[in-house]
Each structure stands twice: as C-alpha cells, then as structure tokens.
C-alpha cells in the first residue's frame, strides 16, 4: 500500500456568519450577504482543495469540547439539524456527513499508543457541533469527501497551557502516523479564529458591514504579526510566541487545533499562503494554507 500523506493543512475558521451570509440551501436563515472578503478567501481555498483531490478531511473543532480525553466521531453517517447555541438566529443547518471511521479509529488507537486518553464517539444521535460543520461547509460545500471529526480536549484550559499544547502536539503526531499507515491523501483543517476579542451585542442586521471591524486594535496587531510570520514560514517563532499570543489576543488557537495541525505537518518551514483575512463580530479570522505537496514536503 502506498504510504499515506498529509497533502495540505488549512487554517479554516468557523464563524457561522459565513454560512449565513452564503445562503446555502442547508441553512434555514436567509441573509443579504456580508463578510465577502472572508468568503472570497474560502473560494480560493476551495479551489486549492479541489486540485489536491484528498481522500479525507480531518477537522479539529473547539466547539466539541471534551473533558475526558480526545474524542473522534465514530459513526459512519451522521445527519441532523445543528442549531448554533450562540447564534441560533444565523445558523440552523441540516447536515449530512460521511465519517471515515476506519481512519478515525486508527487516529484514536495511535493517540492511545502515545499515552493520550482517547475514545470513539459511537452514539448515532450525536449532534455535530457548529464549528465542525461551518469549517467543512466553507471549505467543501459539496460534502463529498469523508471526514474525521476530532474534539478539543479541555487540557489547555484545565491543565497549564504548556501541558495542553504538549497533548495537542502528541495528538498531531498520532494523527500523522495514522494517516501514513492508511495510504490516504489527507487534508487537515484547523477550525480556529485568531484574535477572539468580540463585540457583546449584535447589530440589528447582523450582516450590516458598517458595524464590522476589529474589536481590539491589540488583537488586530497580533493577527497581522502572526499572519506575517506564517507567510514567511517562521512557525518556530509563532510557537515561541504562542503563550503570549493566546494571552494577549485571547486567541481561539488555545483550544488546540493550531498546535495539533502544525505538529501533524511536522511544523513546516514552508511559507503559508494567506487566502484572506477578515473580522466577524470583531474577531480576527485568517484563511491560510500549507500546500505540503506543492512544497515537496
């Protein structure tokens, strides 16, 4: 069997506003649009993904937060209606996704072998979180590529940040081993916003873009600093700054997807491509890609 590989990784944030703005048939609320620069960024990411022709998408979402270990979706087909508990006015989405249970089980087993508490989620009535769904919809609205869904274990919050990051780095290594053994072409999705400072009240018309801007200038500056470093391939410097970034930008990357993905990709030194940046209720969101195949990694 051919050795599997991670062909690319994307930072693919999940504000449900982006799905709302796009008016797909799966989402009940209708909008007048909005957040176009971010949606155009996802258009570019979609084209890149299409060219990569992956067998599977793996997504790590902060909105499936688990207390006891790292959990993996383990039901072949999951469908239902996902209503965002924070933005129910914007996101009421009928989802229907295929899970690559075989790869999920392999990731879970590798994680266990590395000493991580890990388990498979086998309940067919499970409601997939809106972070997972939004990221998957925005990167591949056709829903024709099987998925591995991974929870965000609470360790970065419950333990020290360093201990939590160490867990995610191990999870990334376990993910890479499982992918290599699977023979599959995999794309990783880090479902995270950068600066997470946000407004506390919603405009009467959520898509009124005259109300949209960075909530925090300090957060915005962190976003630009990190994007610039990633565009230069300075991942080591980003990881050195990680604790300060998390603290000062209230960055959602604390939840683990970012170190998970970078670890799985071997902390690539190749420059990341910025597909676009924009704010959503004041938070900073970048759509970025490491095309490892093109880089020959």
């Amino acid at each position: 069997m051919t050795k599997g590989s991670i062909v690319a990784g994307f930072i693919a944030p999940h504000p449900p506003h982006l799905v709302y703005a796009e008016n797909p048939p799966q989402n009940e609320p209708r909008s007048e649009g909005g957040w176009e620069p971010l949606r155009w960024a996802y258009e570019r990411a979609r084209a890149s993904l299409e060219a990569l022709k992956p067998d599977v998408l793996l997504v790590h979402s902060p909105h499936w937060q688990t207390l006891v270990g790292h959990h993996f979706l383990g039901v072949p087909k999951l469908s239902g209606r996902s209503v965002d508990p924070i933005f129910p006015n914007l996101f009421r989405y009928n989802f229907d996704l295929d899970v690559d249970v075989e790869l999920a089980e392999a990731c879970c087993a590798e994680a266990r072998a590395m000493g991580l508490e890990s388990k498979m989620m086998r309940n067919p009535g499970f409601r997939v979180d809106y972070g997972t769904i939004t990221t998957l919809h925005m990167i591949r609205p056709q829903w024709d590529i099987p998925v591995v869904g991974i929870s965000a274990n609470n360790s970065p919050y419950y333990l020290t940040l360093d201990e939590g990051v160490d867990e995610m780095i191990k999870l990334g290594e376990a993910t890479r081993r499982a992918i290599e053994a699977s023979g599959k072409r995999a794309v990783l999705l880090c479902s995270n916003t950068f600066s997470h400072w946000h407004f506390h009240e919603e405009p009467a018309l959520p898509e009124d873009m005259t109300k949209e801007h960075p909530q925090s200038y300090a957060g915005y500056k962190w976003d630009m600093r990190i994007i610039e470093l990633l565009r230069r391939g300075e991942v080591e410097e980003v990881m050195r700054l990680f604790p300060q970034w998390v603290e000062e930008a209230f960055a959602e990357v604390k939840s683990g997807a970012f170190p998970w993905m970078l670890s799985a990709m071997g902390f690539p030194k190749t420059p990341a491509e910025l597909h676009g940046y924009g704010t959503v209720i004041g938070t900073g969101n970048a759509v970025m890609e490491w095309n490892l195949e093109a880089a020959g990694a």
């Binding site: 499936w64 937060q65 688990t66 207390l67 006891v68 388990k119 989620m121 086998r122 309940n123 009535g125 499970f126 409601r127 979180d129 929870s151």
Partner: peptide, 13 residues
C-alpha cells in the same frame, strides 16, 4: 426531542 451530551453520550440519551 432527544439530547445527546457531547461528553457523556456513552451513558445514554
């Protein structure tokens, strides 16, 4: 309806 807890799904709905 039926709710499945995101952490404790193994114990039932």
């Amino acid at each position: 309806g039926t709710h499945v807890d995101e952490n404790w799904y193994e114990f039932g709905d």
